[in-house]
Design a protein around this nucleic acid. Structure first.
Length: 354
DNA sequence: AACGCGGGGAT
DNA sequence: ATCCCAGCGTT
């Protein structure tokens, strides 16, 4: 298919079918950047409320830079991939301090900033500054692999190269911003992963995958290894009526920088009586055996691991000290302000109505 | 080149 | 139950 035909046709489609989204109403590089980071590995519907909260709370990059990391993580709570939030904050500080609050304008300069990789740099440079550099995201892989019948695996170095080169060959010099967004929107709305809407597709007569019936086989992706299972037994120590013992996760692991309870981890499930035994050994000062209850099983299915979790709830009297320096008792209202994994938030909501 | 990192919606 | 999403940084 002719390159010019493809870009014209998809841009025409976009202008008639695009969703109205707040980050499409602005050319402010700060807001473009914010939306792009939020939308990394995240669907529009999941990211939208976060975008609205961030732009409302932090109208400028300097406002964001002046916040604490805790505030940023708190606002990011529930969105996942929390290194995005830490890099977002880091990047805001760099832009605020080293660039006088103005983002660099070129693809190459943008890519040097924390949290900005190939995709995000291309998105900002093209959308905010009309640089003719193609974005290559999951949508682009899908649309191009199907229409042009490319079966190079997308999660290999070779695949990334092949698709980036093709994408940059297709992007027009005029309106690269519209073109990039058009391909992504088309991938999100029509050329979807499973059962794409080929019957009403504007490229029905040109699409290699449709012609050969390969829609559900493209793009090709090498299978990763299967996710591991982890068993978390959270020890929830409630002091008086109003405070809970919590700790910040500092180990290099899931939920780094977020707060949860002290926990006993295992690669295999442990019987409840055994868990209570271990808890007694760990926290003898709370006299665990007298007041312990165990919650139902919480199953938390993530892409890279499945976490099976139970909460062991121990009530203790006032004026008991925290058992370790890294832990601290927080009143329930303060607990509500701490950034926590959704698993913890759900448990708290159910048990303590936070 | 491979791995770790979240949560939610669609199928 | 599985896949995948407007990916990035580290090992």
């Amino acid at each position: 298919m002719d390159k010019r035909y493809f870009s014209d046709k998809i841009v025409e489609w976009y202008q008639e079918n695009r969703r109205m989204l707040p980050w499409r109403q602005t050319k402010d590089p700060y807001k473009i950047w914010l939306s792009e980071v939020i939308l990394q590995q995240t669907r529009v519907n999941q990211g939208l409320p976060y975008y609205l909260r961030f732009t409302e709370t932090f109208p400028t990059v300097t406002a964001l830079a002046n916040a604490s990391e805790q505030e940023v993580l708190r606002l990011w709570q529930g969105l996942g991939y929390y290194s995005r939030a830490r890099n977002l904050h880091k990047c805001a500080k760099v832009v605020s301090k080293d660039h006088h609050g103005t983002f660099p304008k070129t693809f190459e300069e943008l890519k040097k900033l924390p949290g900005i990789g190939e995709y995000t740099a291309a998105a900002i440079a093209s959308i905010a500054h009309y640089e003719a550099v193609a974005v290559v995201d999951g949508n682009v892989f899908r649309v191009l692999s199907r229409i042009f019948g490319i079966d190079t695996p997308i999660n290999t170095t070779e695949g990334k190269k092949v698709f980036a080169e093709l994408a940059n060959k297709l992007i027009p010099e005029t309106s690269p911003d519209i073109y990039n967004q058009a391909v992504m929107e088309f991938g999100a709305m029509y050329c979807v992963p499973k059962n794409p809407l080929c019957a009403e597709c504007i490229f029905k007569t040109q699409c290699t995958a449709y012609e050969k019936g390969l829609q559900n086989l493209l793009p090709v992706k090498i299978k990763g290894k299967e996710s591991r299972k982890r068993y978390f037994y959270y020890v929830v120590i409630q002091k008086g009526e109003n405070s809970l013992l919590m700790k910040k996760r500092v180990e290099k692991d899931i939920w780094f920088g977020l707060y949860d309870f002290p926990l006993i981890e295992s690669t295999k499930p442990i019987r409840a009586d055994k868990v209570i035994e271990k808890t007694t050994a760990l926290y003898p000062i709370y006299r665990v055996s007298e007041s312990v209850t165990v919650s139902d099983l919480y199953k938390h299915v993530l892409t890279h691991q499945t976490i099976f979790c139970k909460f062991i709830i121990i009530k203790t009297s006032r004026n008991m000290p925290a058992p370790e320096k890294s832990m601290k008792f927080y009143s329930l209202s303060k607990v509500g302000d701490l950034p926590k994994p959704v698993l913890i938030s759900k448990f708290l909501k159910k048990s303590y109505l936070l």
